[in-house]
Amino acid sequence: MAGALETLCGQAYGAKQYRKLGTYTYCSVVALTFVCLPVSLLWIFEEKLLVLLGQDPSVSKQAGRYSIFLLPALFAYAVLKSLVRYLQTQGLTFAMLLSSCVALSLHIPLCWSLVYKFELGTAGAALSLGLSYWLCVMMLGIYIKCSSVCEKTRSSFTIDVFLSIREYMRFAVPSAIMACLTTTSLHYLISYGISAATSTRISNELGAGNPKAAQAAVYAGVILTVVEAVIVGVILFCCRSVLGYAYSNEKEVVDYMKEIAPLLSLSVVMDGLLAVLSGISRGSGWQHLGGYVNLAAYYLVGIPLALVLCFVLHLRGIGLWIGILTGSAVQVLLLALITSFTNWQKQAIETRERIFEQTRADNGSS
């Protein structure tokens, strides 16, 4: 929702209505703070909601505890995103970079201390995130208050802040919806869901010594992903002439979307396969192989090819996309070969041996 400031503050700054930037930023902070209230209620009662949805009570308890201690981060994030957009629309990025670096350098030892030294566990991780966000808010707030470069865009908190809320919401709600309409990102959530399910089933069955069930989970995950990805890819390709209107009414954008739709369709298929094959890697415990495949596919094939197509052959954005898509295809091919040549019986035996060896080692340590 803070994306509304990119329109409101950006246009106000371009029109030299500098005081409006301060007003809109106050408006954003107020509006997003109110939005955080119902979200807070969901987080407070998250444990009970998860139990109602059938989640394991012990998992629900940990998730609920984490969410409650994450509440300070929620409100800090609302303020931080407003301040970031305020500075961003003015091109004042150095302050954001500096505050992020300072907060990160303090967040790591702070998180470690709260989690391990004070033994707060997940609650400590949540609290450290909130403290880091509030630190960023304080640093940016001081910068905005004291810096001469923000003098012309600073304004007082007046009744205009509340009068601007209606206008702000008119842009904020579509901004939130637009973030959910990023085609490949939205589709990847489906692929990731299948990937997570496949990974869970494989790891469970291998741990239980059921190689055939693990192999069945592989087949099920791949088949589901292929069918779903192909359907989505075909739909996107068939709708290529009108797809651009989901994002813009500009003819140039619509025409460009039509041009790149075939690449988008192929990306959907490759990303889906890559997601489920990565899930198989995680579930099987050979992430190291996946890491090597990833490095080889992108840094030895994808990125060099993208640079050549874009800057040498002057294919520009399409060239970049073809290069990265080729990297994804290589990664899918290599992971598929590893998966197809995996001896699941041996994998199950090795998995159980590793688990029991670790258990014996833990018992020995005890």
Rank of each mutant, 00 (worst) to 15 (best):
K212P: 01
L334Q: 04
G244F: 13
N363C: 08
L273T: 09
R201E: 03
P211D: 07
G209L: 06
G130H: 10
L83D: 02
G209T: 04
E47L: 10
V226T: 11
G317I: 06
A196I: 03
V308C: 14
D362L: 15
G3D: 07
D271E: 05
A179Y: 00
K16M: 13
V268R: 12
L300V: 10
V312Q: 01
R352W: 00
C136L: 13
V226K: 05
L337C: 03
G317A: 10
T184S: 09
T23A: 07
L206H: 00
L98K: 14
K152A: 11
Y168L: 14
I355H: 06
F311Y: 04
S191A: 06
L53G: 09
T89N: 15
L266A: 13
G291K: 12
V254P: 10
F157Q: 10
A2T: 09
C146P: 03
S328D: 08
Q331P: 00
G141N: 15
W112I: 01
K346E: 07
E46Q: 14
S100I: 04
M139V: 05
S113P: 07
L131K: 08
S60G: 08
S195F: 00
A275R: 10
R154F: 04
R170V: 15
G22A: 06
G22L: 03
V242L: 03
A176D: 04
L289P: 00
Y143N: 03
A126K: 15
V51L: 12
L83G: 03
L92Q: 10
M138C: 13
F311V: 03
W43A: 02
G364K: 03
E46P: 08
A197V: 12
A63N: 05
T342V: 06
A261G: 10
S40N: 06
M138Y: 15
C180N: 01
I322E: 05
Q287A: 00
T351G: 01
S82V: 03
A2G: 07
V84R: 13
L295C: 08
S265T: 09
P72V: 14
N343E: 04
S185E: 00
F94R: 12
I68W: 08
S99Y: 07
V232Q: 03
T158Y: 13
M257V: 13
E259S: 15
I223W: 11
I165V: 15
R65N: 10
G272M: 06
A15F: 12
G283Q: 04
G290T: 08
V137P: 12
A63M: 11
G327I: 04
T225V: 12
L264F: 07
L181W: 11
S199C: 02
C150Y: 14
Q331H: 00
V230Q: 02
R316N: 11
V30G: 11
L131Q: 11
I303C: 11
